[in-house]
Design a protein around this nucleic acid. Structure first.
Lengths: 180, 180, 180, 180
DNA sequence: CCGTAAACGAGACGGTACGTCTTGTCTTACA
DNA sequence: TGTAAGACAAGACGTACCGTCTCGTTTACGG
């Protein structure tokens, strides 16, 4: 239910109760327990449902210039991460994932992997176009670009700005570009 | 109290109760509430106490070859992150940090920043030695190297191996090295 | 629950905890709070349940001789008050009543009044038979007979014996008998 | 300390805490524990201190007419019992007495007995004057007169009025007067 | 078109933990 | 030396939720 997303947007994960979700949804507790094994699973499904609009555009933009395209994606990502409506439910989900390996696997399968594949596909096209080193490991490459940003978001180790995203992107691409 | 670390090593954060910590420490609950405002703060102090041995060696190795030195540090980091005795309390702390901006700030101040400074100092020496681009933003540089690894640890988005660390390091340094 | 009576028979009221009653009854604390507003109310209901056997015999003996009948009742009352199994829960209930006017009202309604009415009815029959002054206020009369005994029990201002009860009864009846 | 009386006048016994008494008196808790073994003992001493003004007039009025004199005493007693400033601390003390036989003994010794003796002395003079049966047990007589009133006060089994006191007194004296 | 069974809302239940309060003991620091 | 101040271990308070378990009551499908 999307009632879970509402509440996840209002409360930190630890304050989020199945009881409250059920009440908000106008639903008996048992109905929730019938369909999900844990609060974490509810949150995962809630976030999945909520972000299902994204599922269609599993295609990153491709103008022919990788850095331009990725910059657009990173800026959008940064904007989302700075938007409380996205930030709060996502933090709840992240908490669940950090605690629970089982859930992390399901999250990886259902939400992260498709996104990862889309990013990797864009990098692969760039590699074929000679923009990137043909030897580069593209899984690592995706994580070089997005990992530092996600890490800064999670730990709030610094301000999450377009400028930061640009710096990360520039450095990562510099390391990934064709040598020699 | 280090009794908190013990329990944090046995249970996920959500199952970790102040009641249990107090009982294990042979202490009244009120004593804990007197000194810490929340479970999260207890966990932070517990981890700080526990890792205080590290506080002295705020000096990264310096053999003259940056990549060798960082590789050693990253391998050690990866090994720690793969050790359940370190992983479990650290995940508890991470959960607390993801949920609570206040705590994240305190964590940044007391544990992360000194480590960050040490890493940055090593990079700075490499920059002076001409191993890195003199224009490079070293804060970003540190996060380029450690961010992807921490992110993979947290989200378990892939195996956390020495090889992965090496790949991240190589790519990051390639992007940071002197151009032209 | 009659588990409350057990505990009320073992501990003074101030040491009697809802936690302990719940544990002894094999019941969650919330279940008690759901049904009773306070420890006092639990004790009242416990005593009511426990003494419900008495509810049927709301008829005092009537041999035709009032003093004989009342003596029997008073002796039984004194014996009960001297029996720890009765004394201890009853003291708990009394403490609750002395402290809490609300509870006193409910106690009066549900336990004391029926007993009072039964006593008054016996006195009324005696009054019709000419054993008592037709002008006597029978509510006062009941309290003249039982009040001093209950007061001695509560305050332990002296030994609570059959002889004492007899002396009270004799004096009270002397004051209540037909004048002239 | 008379600070205890203040608080006993504001709160029911169960809410009265040694901590609060100490704080109100500007005194360390330990100082209280040094001098009194329990909260009950503090309350007893507080009430004793507070009512020590009465200690002098251990003489009941003696106009020559017993009923008139006792009526005056009973009316004063009833008025006190209906005055919250007296009622509340006294209820606290009563609760302590009902629960604790030890304290009841001390209370009997230090507060109740002198009053009882004064009442008994007045009855004794009446007995000598031929107003009462020379055979009457005066201890019982005192309790016949005061017991019903104290009992009605404690249990709130009915309104505590001058009229009630008069009725009790009249009945008791009727039973105690010279027979034949 | 109706009987029946699944899923439902509601919410009581035995429990665990919360964060607060008080108890009686023990320690510190000042006067 | 004695006292206020207050930390401490212990444990009860009353509340919030947990996950399980009946309860009737809708729906909605197969006979």
């Amino acid at each position: 239910m999307s009632a879970a997303v509402e509440l996840a947007g209002e409360l930190p994960y630890s304050r989020l109760s199945i009881e409250a979700i059920a009440a908000r949804a106008g639903v008996g507790k048992q109905t929730i327990y019938r369909w999900w094994p844990s609060k974490a699973a509810v949150v995962l499904d809630a976030v999945l449902t909520w972000s299902q609009g994204d599922d269609g555009d599993l295609q990153l933009p491709d103008t022919g210039d990788l850095e331009t395209d990725l910059r657009a994606v990173l800026h959008a990502t940064v904007d989302e991460l700075n938007d409380p409506h996205y930030d709060r439910p996502m933090r709840s989900l992240t908490v669940a994932i950090v605690e629970d390996a089982q859930l992390a696997a399901e999250y990886g399968e259902r939400l992260e992997r498709p996104l990862h594949q889309a990013k990797k596909a864009r990098l692969h096209r760039a590699q074929l176009a000679g923009e990137l080193d043909p030897e580069a490991d593209l899984d690592v490459a995706v994580e070089m670009i997005f990992g530092p940003i996600m890490n800064r978001w999670m730990t709030r180790s610094g301000p999450l700005t377009h400028a930061y995203a640009d710096a990360v992107l520039a450095t990562a691409l510099a390391g990934l570009r064709r040598r020699g």
